[in-house]
Design a protein around this nucleic acid. Structure first.
Lengths: 226, 226
DNA sequence: CGGTCACTTCGGCCACCGCCGAACCGTCGT
DNA sequence: ACGACGGTTCGGCGGTGGCCGAAGTGACCG
């Protein structure tokens, strides 16, 4: 009977913590389990259980990456469901909020840090440019040309650590891989040090400065995303 | 926080029986507590508690009438919420069902029995006509003229019971009062006996027959509703 | 007045659920 | 190899909530 399905669906939403998760995920980004645990103020174990329920219930999709578990709203259908419910809950004042939120989301999509390297369209653009110039292989390993280039242009010599020099990191907003590893971290640090990118506010979003724009154009032929 | 409100709302829907109630109430009509209890297959006491919750939660409105408790969806906003949820639950096949259901609803709105008297637009129209002709007062008491009219036209003499001769009964689809009591019951019985109205199918809906249409026009100047 | 009927309230039973901390598992980085 | 760290699993605790039957309330009817 349809009533049972309705009740099951509602039960999935009928919890304070899960509701907080979903609201947070309304920004369309992928969050890690611990980020959500902190946002909802529950223990990591609790968050983990909630996430499995939400994924099983089809509201979220997950992607394991290394030791992280990323979750995201499963799709526009699910987002729409939440919007409908929030609309019912009434005169929220989202004209400003939604605008701010979507502006924030756009900024994050354009460029951001992912731990210690660059992600978003900016990260992808740099990675692509390095690949087409033969500095990286298709599966994001550093070529010999790449090594000399990093040395000459960025003053980068690979440290003697076990951390891989280059690694592919899947980008959740772009659904593309971009450069991580020590090389990726160094590129990010270098761009910050030169003042080519700057953090926006307190979050992970970054923007390309005017000097950075011309510098990247010269260096790699990268044009500012968006 | 908005998450709490969302969770509360969802909790209201997150029960098998309550979901069944709401689905039944999607026809827009007012149901009694026991009708819903039977429809959801729970004890009357259980149904009663669920209804209080749904009313307190703002999804339903109630109206006590005699020993009955009628409940109805609180409004279009609530109906819309349920439709959105059902839409999410996916490819239901409501094209035919909705059509049938709305046809049934239209028939009920046009005319139906309410226990032993007439309700819907037909009941209201007859009541209005009797009022404008001075057979009933504004608050639906039978006047002297009304008494002689009932006697002469309908062969009705008030029985010696404690049941009131005439009474106002609130109509849920029309949000108007119409004639109940022994007089109302007699009018209904009379119209049935003469073949002026006939039951549609097995439910409470009735329709005016062609002869009934002209008869009522002659008798009270009532034109068939709709 | 007395009987019926629709509904409500109450008490008790049982199941489920959310929460946490502790222990455990893989991955990462040195 | 080792420690740090993100995440998961498990056991146990406490609260909530749905369900029913029995008893109570109040309207209705003859």
């Amino acid at each position: 009977m349809a009533a049972d399905e309705l009740a099951d669906l509602a039960a999935l939403l009928a919890d304070r913590s899960r509701a907080r998760f979903l609201l947070a995920l309304m920004d369309g980004r992928a969050w890690t389990s611990s980020e959500l645990a902190e946002a909802a103020e529950v223990a990591p174990s609790t968050a983990s259980e909630h996430l499995t329920r939400l994924v099983r219930g089809g509201l979220l999709v997950e992607r394991r990456q290394g030791r992280h578990r990323y979750v995201q709203l499963a799709g526009p259908k699910q987002a729409r469901l939440l919007e409908d419910l929030l609309a019912y809950l009434g005169p929220t004042d989202p004209p400003k909020r939604t605008l701010r939120a979507s502006a924030a989301t756009r900024a994050l999509r354009r460029g951001r840090t992912c731990y210690d390297h660059l992600a978003g369209r900016l990260g992808v653009a740099i990675t692509d440019a390095m690949t087409t110039r033969g500095l990286l292989t298709e599966d994001l390993a550093v070529t010999d040309d790449g090594l000399t280039w990093l040395e000459r242009e960025l003053g980068f010599t690979p440290p003697a650590t076990r951390r891989p020099l280059a690694k592919a990191c899947l980008d959740w907003t772009e659904r593309r891989s971009h450069l991580a590893g020590t090389a990726g971290a160094h590129v990010c640090a270098h761009l910050h040090a030169r003042g080519w990118v700057r953090r926006i506010g307190t979050g992970r979003a970054v923007r390309l400065t005017p000097t950075g724009e011309t510098a990247l154009e010269d260096l790699l032929g990268v044009t500012a995303p968006e």
